[in-house]
């Protein structure tokens, strides 16, 4: 009976092919350092899940952002857990992604045929930092407000274009409701969409070329 259902589904979904091509692949002998990529993916998923939950109560407006975060932390069951995981997940994700990149660098895994995987990986690293930068402002507390003031100020030192970049980042010359709103949009829509897309490409390339092996004297 189950066999029949499975066969019916397999005929239409190609489950066995999927299993063979995605999961039952041969790989070089694994190394614990090779788990950092999947750890980054795991953290991304955790951030996505907790982030989605946070938007249930969070309000991106200077009047309410602070109070809504306070409500999440003190008024909602397990709000402290969801926000705690999101907060610490951000920190861990920056570390894990960075160490993953160092591992790839030191084992020279970016070389032929994995150049594009590296290129996309650098993009993922920059997007991760962007997520951290935009997410930091959202609680609208003293720390985040002034950190963002300084951070955008630094972008404003670019010769000739500085003032323009500053205004584009802040949505005006000053840090305001517009800044909060566009950082929120970037943090929950634009950057995650870009991240998800690049992660897909990154994974496709890893499956296509296989995980690189740990270099030996011959390499």
């Amino acid at each position: 009976m189950w066999k029949k259902i499975f066969d019916w589904l397999d005929e239409r979904l190609g489950l066995v092919d999927l299993y063979k091509n995605l999961l039952d692949r041969p790989e070089p002998q694994g190394n614990w350092w090779n788990t950092l990529g999947s750890a980054s993916l795991f953290l991304f998923i955790m951030q996505a899940v907790t982030g989605i939950f946070l938007t249930v109560y969070y309000t991106p407006s200077p009047d309410h952002a602070y109070d809504s975060i306070n409500y999440i932390m003190n008024g909602v069951a397990f709000g402290w857990l969801i926000r705690g995981i999101h907060h610490w997940g951000a920190t861990l994700m920056v570390i894990v992604v960075f160490v993953h990149m160092l591992r790839v660098f030191f084992t020279a895994s970016f070389k032929y045929p994995r150049e594009m995987t590296w290129l996309i990986g650098v993009g993922l690293f920059l997007l991760t930092l962007g997520m951290g930068f935009t997410g930091y402002l959202l609680p609208w507390n003293q720390k985040s407000y002034w950190a963002t003031t300084v951070g955008t100020q630094i972008a404003g030192t670019v010769p000739f274009l500085g003032d323009f970049i500053l205004k584009a980042l802040r949505g005006g010359s000053n840090l305001s409701a517009l800044t909060l709103q566009r950082f929120f949009a970037a943090h929950i829509w634009m950057l995650p969409a870009a991240l998800a897309g690049l992660i897909g490409a990154h994974l496709y390339l890893i499956i296509k070329h296989g995980e690189s092996h740990f270099p030996t004297k011959d390499d």
């Binding site: 955790m46 899940v49 907790t50 939950f53 249930v56 909602v76 069951a77 397990f78 709000g79 857990l81 969801i82 995981i85």
Partner: peptide, 15 residues
């Protein structure tokens, strides 16, 4: 570990 607290978090106002 993440799902159960999340459900409680989502349904909190109803409780």
């Amino acid at each position: 570990a993440i799902g159960l607290p999340a459900i409680s978090y989502l349904l909190d106002p109803a409780f």
